[in-house]
Design a protein around this nucleic acid. Structure first.
Length: 423
RNA sequence: GGAGAGGUGGCUGAGUGGCUGAAAGCAGCACACUGCUAAUGUGUUAACCCAGCAAUGGGUUCAUGGGUUCGAAUCCCAUCCUCUCCGCCA
């Protein structure tokens, strides 16, 4: 969340930002609630002062009678305050993070500038297949039985593809370990209060989150949630920053209403494995840390030798907690583009600088050398989202004979080629 | 899942209705002193909210949420977590 003091003092700037980001936040309403809230807090505090004074020593029976009235009055006002604060918090959490000045202001979600392209997509001298056709021919994914057992948009990865999942995990973890990231596996479920503080709304309309019945737990949509919650309520020392984690988890998304030919196969699924990079840093270094995360993502996919481009989210496409977001989009020869032709870019990673937006809600600070405390900045970035990486590999590495080569860097973990002959 | 014990400041730990935002110790900080590198003495050190330019004043916080009371760390209820034992299990 944003600092309410900042919102009070920069009302117009915040309103403009909400507008650019197509946010439903109502800043005027929020500030009205803020005013009501402060007024009633003042009233409650002075009533309490009277009560506290009155009940010092041994009060007389008359005084006790008077104090009784005060208690009732305080109770009433507290109930009113609670009502106001509920609405206030609801509004406050709707206000998105401030936006990095270099981000393109646009109200069109498809208006993301392309920053660079790595490797031009290869031309095939045969008709390339999409990953669904490829995996069918080679018995790599079982959609039908997954539908039987779990429903649509679930899948079984089979044979070499099951190996490929772990090869990708191992590959990415090794790179990150070398770079000083702490490898960590996280819970796949988290409390709703943590989701909320991280800027995900588990109970909102159009939520992407699965909730567990009869509990306050949700299935996480990303390890960003469990890694942001990891240091909740802590004061970190300046010396231990930056903290860098390479978190492995499953991710669960309801993907409500996203059925289309653009999300066929395993492009958009209810569950997948992901390695997420997560950093806690000093505010003045967060922009450099964000660049570092982007560079690592590029290094990982350059290593896999997959064509990709880097896009910079425009304001309309920015998630609420983020001040700036870069995506890597891989070339997917089997993905239909808007004109219905084969071949398009598909998102494979995403890295966001959430500055102190999440840290404020989670109360994560660090202690500076001079003793002052300040909120940390928190950043996240995808190292490998397994299903998306698999699509990119299958479709880019398919061969004329129907087999699939495996990227050089993964061959130490699994066979170097997937063919139709199974044992 | 069953039985029991417990959750207090940066840490250890005392406190069973007002004198307790909280003893004592440790750690930290400041000053003093010592000529030998660490000890001694004195003082000081929680967070958050509201008002204020500030000094400051007020409020809240002893796992969390409710309740009793003029007044709760202290009494009652619920929940969560930790430890021990039993059961179960990967």
């Amino acid at each position: 969340m944003l600092d309410i003091k900042y919102i009070r003092e920069h009302k117009e700037e915040v309103k403009k930002n909400c507008e650019n980001r197509l946010s439903s936040a109502n800043v005027d309403e929020l500030l009205k609630l803020d005013e009501q809230r402060r007024k009633i807090i003042g009233e409650i505090d002075s009533l309490r002062t009277e009560r506290n004074q009155g009940s010092k020593g041994k009060p007389s029976p008359e005084e006790i009678e008077a104090m009784k009235q005060k208690r009732v009055r305080i109770g009433e006002m507290e109930a009113e305050l609670a009502k106001i604060e509920e609405k206030y918090n609801e509004e406050l959490f709707k206000v998105p993070n401030l936006t990095h000045p270099d981000v393109k202001a646009s109200k069109n979600e498809d208006d993301n500038p392309v920053l660079e392209i790595f490797k031009e997509p290869a031309k095939f001298d045969f008709e390339p297949k999409d990953h669904v056709q490829l995996s069918e021919a080679l018995d790599l994914i079982d959609f039908n039985r997954a539908a039987e057992v779990s429903g649509a948009k679930f899948y079984y990865l089979k044979n070499e593809l099951a190996l490929l999942e772990f090869a990708l995990i191992q590959y990415a973890l090794e790179i990150l370990y070398q770079k000083g990231f702490t490898p960590i596996t996280t819970p796949d479920l988290a409390k709703q209060e943590v989701l909320k503080a991280m800027g995900f709304n588990p109970r909102g309309e159009s939520t992407q989150i699965y909730n567990i019945e009869n509990s306050d737990l949700s299935l996480i949509g990303t390890a960003e949630i469990t890694m942001g919650g990891y240091h909740r309520g802590e004061v970190l020392s300046e010396a231990e920053l930056p903290k860098k984690y390479a978190a492995v988890s499953h991710c669960f998304r309801t993907e409500a209403g996203s059925y289309s030919k653009f999300s066929k196969g395993i492009f958009r699924v209810h569950q997948f494995t992901k390695i997420e990079m997560f950093q806690y840093v000093r505010p003045e270094t967060s922009e450099a840390a964000h660049r570092e995360l982007l560079e690592i993502e590029k290094e990982i996919f350059k290593g896999l030798d997959i064509p990709f481009r880097v896009v910079d989210h425009c304001t309309a496409d920015l998630g609420a907690p983020s001040t700036r977001t870069f995506d890597l989009e891989a070339w997917m020869p089997g993905k239909p583009n808007k004109e219905g032709k084969m071949g398009d870019w598909g998102e494979i990673t995403s890295t966001s600088n959430c500055t102190d937006y999440q840290a404020r809600a989670l109360n994560i600070k660090y202690k500076k050398a001079d003793g002052d405390k300040e909120y940390v900045h928190m950043l996240n970035g995808t190292a490998i989202a397994v299903t998306r990486a698999i699509i990119a590999i299958l479709e880019n590495y398919q061969q004329a004979d129907g087999s699939i080569k495996i990227p050089e860097v993964l061959v130490k973990y699994m066979p170097g080629r997937i063919t139709s002959i199974k044992k």
